[in-house]
Structures are given as C-alpha cells and as structure tokens.
Simulated assay, not measured.
Amino acid sequence: MELLKVTINHAGYSGNTDVIKKVDLSVKSGELIGLIGPNGAGKSTTIKAIMGLLPVMDGKVEFAGEGRNYSYIPEQPVLYERLTLWEHLELAAAVYEMERNVFLSRAEDLLKLFHLSEVKHHLPGTFSKGMQQKVMLILGFLLEPAVYVVDEPFLGLDPRGTKDFLSHLNQARVKGAGVLMSTHVLDTAEKICDSFVLMNAGTVVAAGNLMEIRKQCQLPEGSLFECFDQLLENSK
C-alpha cells in the first residue's frame, strides 16, 4: 500500500524558486526509503517541501488516509526552554488528542526504551545533544503514525541510542508504517534501507534498490558509497 507519494516540479524560496526540481518518490507500507546526497543536494529542502514548510512549492504531496498520520523528526531538536521532558510529551499528546491511558503507556515505554525515565521531569535544555535527539525520537514515535519522515536521525546518537532507534523503527515497519529517512551514514543506510533516492544539485540522479542503483552506476558489486561516489562524478 502506498502511504506517501511526492511529485515536486520545483520548490524553494522567494529568491530562489528552483532549490529542488523534478523530485519524485513514494513510500509504501513497511518500507524504509533512504534519501541520500551530499551537503546542499536538496534533501532537507525536499523534506521541508513534503511538510509544507516552503513558501514556493509547485507539485503534489499525498499522504494516505485522513488527518495527521505522519511524524516529522527534524535534524535539529526543537524544544521549549521552560517545559520539562514530560511536559513536552503531554503537550504532544494534547495536540494529537491522544487518549490518556494510551499516552501514559506509550510515553513510559518510550522513556524506558531510550533510557530517559530518570530525567523525565528535567528540562531538556540541560541535556546533551544525544539526549535531546532522543527526546525528538520519542515525540516522533509517540503518535505511532502511518509515515515517519526523519531528517538525519543518527547525529548525536551513541551506538546504543542508534540501536534502540533502529529496533523501534523496525517494529513500527512490521506494523505497517513507512519511513522516509535522510542520512549521510551510508554504511548504515545500505544495511537498513529497502531502496534509495539519491539527490545532487537539487534533483534526483538515481533511485531504486541497491541492485538497481548498481546497474545504473555500472558497478555490479559496488557498495552504496561507491555507487554514490560514481553518480556524483557522472553528474558533474
């Protein structure tokens, strides 16, 4: 089942309306799509376009179903200075209109998973970057949406945090959720993603699973990194 379909003719800002162009991608139930590209390739701009955060957008973004059925986990934590971790969760639950008992169960389970139970009444502003990133992951997982849109989730996470994140993300996929994930960590992406969308200079230069990417690059045994490097050379 297709949960997210994106067709962007061009998008950007008032001073530059073509930051990204000709971007087509889709995410199916249970699928993890890796959005790959160098700095400035247009990955984060693509995600902003999907979230409706750009002033200029010529294209179409379709989520399956009705209402808020996606979670966005940004690259940089967005936190309120005067709210504790638990108050952040309660605020999110109120926005999502979650039933109290469902919220309490999920919140406590996620706090335990990411080892933040003991600091749930502390201010996240005092946390390390990795702990703040875990707060964003917890907020993203709280709703249990149909689609997760995740921008560079591994930044700041230690190996244990990365393992916990991937384990819970896999559980969500087993239940039918789809994931679009932007990342620079190509060795991890190669292991966990079902297929890839490779971007450069604001547009898609290749798409498909690893076998299809290898074919496009004419590297039958190439790693994702080697294919990525070859595509960048070809696009110069």
Rank of each mutant, 00 (worst) to 15 (best):
K21H: 14
S26G: 03
K5A: 12
E190A: 09
N69H: 09
E99L: 09
N209A: 01
R68K: 15
R106M: 05
N234R: 15
L110R: 11
A172E: 10
A49P: 01
T45Q: 02
A207I: 00
A146N: 12
V61K: 11
V78I: 13
K5N: 14
Q76L: 09
P74M: 13
E62F: 09
T126Y: 11
G161W: 09
G52D: 11
K60N: 12
I36N: 02
S26L: 09
Y96T: 05
F141Y: 07
G42W: 00
F154S: 10
D24F: 08
A11Q: 02
L113G: 00
T183P: 08
M199A: 03
D158T: 06
F165G: 03
L166F: 11
F63M: 11
K215F: 04
E152Y: 08
H121Y: 15
R173F: 07
I192W: 08
L25Y: 10
V102K: 13
G156A: 09
K236F: 15
V150F: 01
M1V: 12
M199K: 01
Q133F: 06
T203L: 04
V78S: 13
A177S: 15
E62S: 13
L3E: 01
F154D: 12
H122Y: 14
S26N: 14
L79E: 10
I20W: 04
R214L: 03
S167N: 12
E212Q: 13
G30L: 04
R82M: 10
L198N: 00
K28V: 01
P145M: 06
I73P: 03
V185N: 14
G208W: 00
L210A: 00
G161D: 03
A189E: 00
S14V: 13
E87D: 09
L85E: 01
L91R: 12
V150K: 01
L85I: 07
L89K: 10
W86N: 14
C217P: 00
V23Y: 07
T188K: 14
A177N: 06
N209Y: 02
L79M: 11
F63I: 11
I36V: 10
H121F: 12
L4I: 06
D24C: 11
D24V: 12
A93Q: 02
A201H: 15
V135M: 06
L139R: 09
T183K: 10
L198I: 15
H121L: 07
A107N: 11
E75W: 01
H88I: 07
R214V: 06
K163P: 00
H184M: 08
F141K: 07
L210G: 01
V78F: 15
G178I: 03
E108K: 14
